[in-house]
Amino acid sequence: MAREKKRWGLTIVGTVVALVFLFPYLIMLVGAFKPRREILQVPPAYLPDNWEPGNFLTMWDTPETPLPFNLLSTVVISLGGTALALLAALPAAYYTARHRFRLRLPFLLLVLVTQMLQPTVLASGLFREFVELGINDTWLAMILVNAAFNLSFAVWIMHSFFASVPNEIEEAAWLDGCSKGQSLRRIMLPLVWPGIVTAVIFTFIACWNEFAASLILLPTDVNQPLTVALTRFIGQYESAWQYVFAVSIIGILPVVALFALIEKHLVSGLTAGGVK
């Protein structure tokens, strides 16, 4: 009886706490549907008198920022950055997990240390470098920056997955006449698939949400990603909060969708593994 009571207590506390944490999303959602007049109303109303789904249409064409380009920037930079980080990290993670060599540990530690570096600190140096290379204020520059700042995580997470596959499996493949490349492609990749997926998702989300580097390194508005575009809706005198929230929702949805999509893959990838 007392146990049962405790369980109900926990359920109620858990629900209330979760709702408190979810409350800001509700504000975001409701705010995105408020007409401009109502969102700055004092005192504030909980729900809009007139729901304004038109915000999701009119936000694409505002004097503040060229939003279609900003969305395109975010997509291009995130996809490019993720692809580059993955392509670079995969061979490094594989090799450091499967081979012992003299510079192995120093290499891994140096990669780990790069996590400490950050765009705001390195921006002056990056800026000069991009000017020299003639790619200043371009998507390519931001793809490189995003790949670089997420490489460490990608290498380490995939390294630990590669390291967890027993050597015998790969050795068996070699005995059967697989080349190194073939064993990597046909044997290892399917086994470490969950690790790759994890690395891809986290890299993609980090690129998608990146703000500081773009703020400093992308002065031209059509090149800027959504995160920087958001700041343009908040002015000193005029603020379009309804657009801030509508754009935020557009920005969050793909990530949530990705998580939902991947969760199944993650589980199936884990259970499909041939080794336990």
């Binding site: 392509l87 670079a88 061979p91 594989y94 290499f107 790069t114 570096l117 002056s124 140096g125 990056l126």
Partner: peptide, 19 residues
């Protein structure tokens, strides 16, 4: 195997750090 990672880290983190 380590080349791509090394190039990116050296070019985009080490060199700007030096700068």
């Amino acid at each position: 195997y380590l080349l791509p990672t090394s190039v990116i880290l050296l070019g985009l983190l080490a060199y700007p750090l030096y700068q």
